[in-house]
Computed example of a mutant assay.
Amino acid sequence: MIARLVLHRAGLAVATLFGVAVVVFLLLRVAPGDPIAMMIAPGASPEDIQRLRAAYGLDRSLIEQFGLWLGAIAQGDFGTSISLRVGVGGALLSRLPATLELCVAALAFAVLLGGGVAVLGTLLARKTGEAVIDAVNGLVLAVPDFIWALAFVILLGVVYPILPLSGRIDPTLPADFSTRFYLLESLVTGQWRVARDVLAHMAMPVLALGLPLAAVIARVLKASLNEAMLQDYVLLARIRGRSPLGLVLGEALRNAAGPALALTGVQFTFLIGGTVIVERIFSYPGIGNLAIDAVINRDLPLIQGLVLLFGLLFILVNIAVDLLAVALNPRLRHG
Rank of each mutant, 00 (worst) to 15 (best):
A195Y: 00
I292Y: 02
M229I: 05
E47D: 09
N137Y: 02
N226P: 00
V295G: 04
F282S: 10
F310V: 12
L5P: 05
A252E: 07
L316C: 13
Q267F: 13
A108P: 11
E64N: 10
V119L: 10
T172F: 15
L68I: 14
I169Y: 00
R242T: 15
F310R: 04
G241C: 04
D134K: 15
D77L: 01
G57K: 03
L209R: 06
R280C: 12
R29T: 00
G286A: 05
F109P: 03
E47P: 01
L302G: 04
A215G: 11
V14E: 02
W148F: 13
L102D: 14
T80H: 01
G114N: 11
L139W: 03
A215R: 05
G87E: 13
E251I: 01
L5Y: 14
L156C: 12
P285L: 05
V6F: 12
G246R: 11
R60W: 06
H8M: 14
A149L: 02
P285S: 05
T179L: 09
W69D: 06
A105R: 00
N297S: 14
N255F: 09
L107E: 09
V248Y: 04
L313E: 07
E101G: 11
G11A: 03
R29H: 12
R9T: 12
D145W: 13
N318K: 09
L52K: 11
E130H: 02
F268W: 08
A74T: 02
L58T: 06
A320G: 08
L102Q: 10
G167M: 12
A106Y: 01
G89M: 12
N329L: 01
L253R: 06
A260Y: 07
A252N: 03
F314E: 12
K222V: 12
L221M: 09
G167I: 12
N329H: 08
